[in-house]
Every structure is written in structure tokens, then in C-alpha cells.
């Protein structure tokens, strides 16, 4: 059976605009969102906070170089 996330070649980026007041708040909020989406070990790739809030992009690597790439086997859970 295919596990959808296994088909991610390397990283998942999530990009949005947060209504917040500081860069620190934007970073923490975005990382919390990622965590609640099940994307642990996320990091902030880009954040720009001006006026009404922050444009922010977070990334979670699913496969890093040197890993065993599950997409090689069509995303199947086993084998």
C-alpha cells in the first residue's frame, strides 16, 4: 500500500501569511503549525515580518541525502 508521504522526493514546504506582531511569534507559530500537522523537525526557511504580519515558509525534510528513499519503491510501506 502506498504511504503518501513516502512519495515526497525530499522536503515539504509550507508557506503562508500569519497575522502576528513579531518575527519570533511568526517562527514559533509556524513551527507549532508544522508540529500539529505531523511535520516534526521542521525549520523556518524564510520569514519576513512587516506591518500586519509575517510571510513565512517552513520546511520539513522527509528524505535527506544518504537516506533510504521510499519513493524509489513507489512509496510502498514495505519492500
Amino acid at each position: 500500500m502506498k504511504e503518501p508521504i513516502n512519495l515526497v522526493m525530499d522536503a515539504i514546504d509550507v508557506e503562508t501569511f500569519l497575522a502576528c506582531t513579531s518575527e519570533e511569534e511568526a517562527r514559533n507559530t509556524m513551527l507549532e503549525i508544522m508540529k500539529r500537522m505531523g511535520l516534526n523537525e521542521a525549520e523556518i526557511v524564510f520569514v519576513e515580518t512587516i506591518g500586519p504580519g509575517a510571510r513565512v515558509r517552513a520546511r520539513c525534510y522527509v528524505h535527506k541525502p544518504g537516506d533510504e528513499y521510499r519513493w524509489l519503491r513507489g512509496g510502498r510501506k514495505h519492500g
Binding site: M9, D10, A11, D13, V45, F46, R59, P65
Partner: peptide, 13 residues
């Protein structure tokens, strides 16, 4: 577009 991002490998996207 990852040229200036130093936090991890370059992504396919």
C-alpha cells in the same frame, strides 16, 4: 531558489 538557504539540502521543488 534554495541558494541562500543553509539549513539543509537543496530541494527538488
Amino acid at each position: 531558489s534554495d541558494e541562500a538557504f543553509s539549513g539543509g539540502p537543496i530541494s527538488a521543488a
